[in-house]
Design a protein around this nucleic acid. Structure first.
Lengths: 214, 214
DNA sequence: CGTGATCCTGACCGTTTGGTCAAACAATTT
DNA sequence: AAATTGTTTGACCAAACGGTCAGGATCACG
């Protein structure tokens, strides 16, 4: 039965094998399109063995999302009230872009979930996520009130950061189809572009004039 | 058998019922997650009746995408070499945002397809789409060479326009979960924001200084 | 009103789906 | 090495899947 000594080596290894395989399959097929057989094959385990570690397909999916949500919101949490506003926001953009490069499957997993109406994480959006976004939007608004950032709707600013950065993970196939490269070269260009885009839009107007008038 | 007089009234009505239902289901479940029974129920037809009009599930999906691709690329095609550069690009942004508001399901259908690796429209991306994007990117580059638009990578500029505008369709649930509104009110704010964002980033630096130095 | 073409459906088929289970197998403890 | 616990699997199940088909209903038109 349940054991107080925690998960065994085998348990840790297999649950992680399963979650890795599930990430691969769910992120590229969506929940409905994924099958336990696919996940089992990717994990190198038998289907009944999956269901020894997880109660159901839903349970695997839930465990995946649960384990990822925290990591996913960390960059936004790191937005520092004490920092230089424009630099803070630009750093957030680049951190988010980096996550799209390093964890594209995780991004696609969330994208799939939200595209399909967020049936399994709806509560988290209107709860934890909304609280965090409202808090950081208020922070940006306070920066704007102090004249340290250009006046742009803070909520929509955050949306635009999500949209532009996650685009490189979620629409990877399209991006690669249009720019030919097989590697990660376009991420460097994307970083330059996004920094220009947001720095240009965020820099307080007076500062901008000062710099360019000289 | 085949008739030279074209489709009958019934054919037109039912194929359109089926495509409308398929759009609803495919866009919210993905191809793999959708079932013929769901589509049939939404269309108010029996499953065998669907298959009287379309040879297979794949055929319905293909017909949907085929009929939509042209419409979807029209706003980009409309980017006019003869127009005022910044206004042209901003107009494109707003047109694209309007499409996200009016046709969110179409946007999600494409998003689902590309998220899942574009297995069914891959050729179109590296063909027709790439040609169009390259052409318009060259147009923007020529505007930049003439000093009429700020220097920003044109391809990534187009990506960022797609990303920011389609975000309001594809991630609708998330946007609505964070801003409370049930209606379309946030689209007006999004339009203002996106115009600020892109106009600020696109305006040639010299013009900007001129305007704000006075 | 008849007749040929079009349209529609209930019953059915083979396969795949998520999930179960008893029994075999391996690890660990005593 | 025996006993206990934890792990794995082949065989199996009911339901749902995409798709077929023979035949009945409905239509357009002379």
């Amino acid at each position: 039965m349940t054991n107080a000594t925690g998960p065994t080596r085998i348990q840790r290894r297999n649950t992680s094998l399963i979650l890795e395989a599930a990430l691969e399959v769910f992120s590229s097929q969506g929940f409905g399109g994924a099958t336990l057989d696919q996940i089992a094959r990717h994990a190198g385990l038998s289907k009944p063995n999956l269901l020894y570690y997880f109660a159901s397909k839903e349970a695997i999916h839930a465990a995946l999302l649960d384990g990822l949500l925290e990591t996913w919101l960390d960059p936004l949490r790191a937005l520092d009230p004490a920092g230089e506003p424009v630099d803070e926001i630009v750093a957030y953009v680049l951190r988010k872009l980096e996550m799209s490069r390093e964890f594209p499957r995780e991004s696609r997993l969330f994208a799939n979930e939200i595209l399909q109406g967020a049936p399994r994480i709806g509560g988290m959006i209107t709860g934890e996520l909304k609280r965090l976004v409202d808090e950081k939007a208020a922070l940006i608004a306070s920066w704007q009130a102090a004249g340290r950032v250009a006046q742009l709707d803070p909520h929509h600013l955050i949306f635009s950061i999500w949209a532009t950065t996650q685009h490189y993970a979620d629409f990877d196939v399209q991006v690669r189809g249009i720019l030919d490269p097989a590697g990660d070269a376009h991420f460097a260009r994307a970083a330059v572009f996004l920094e220009q885009l947001f720095r240009g839009a965020l820099m307080p107007r007076e500062d901008f004039v000062k710099i360019h008038a000289s």
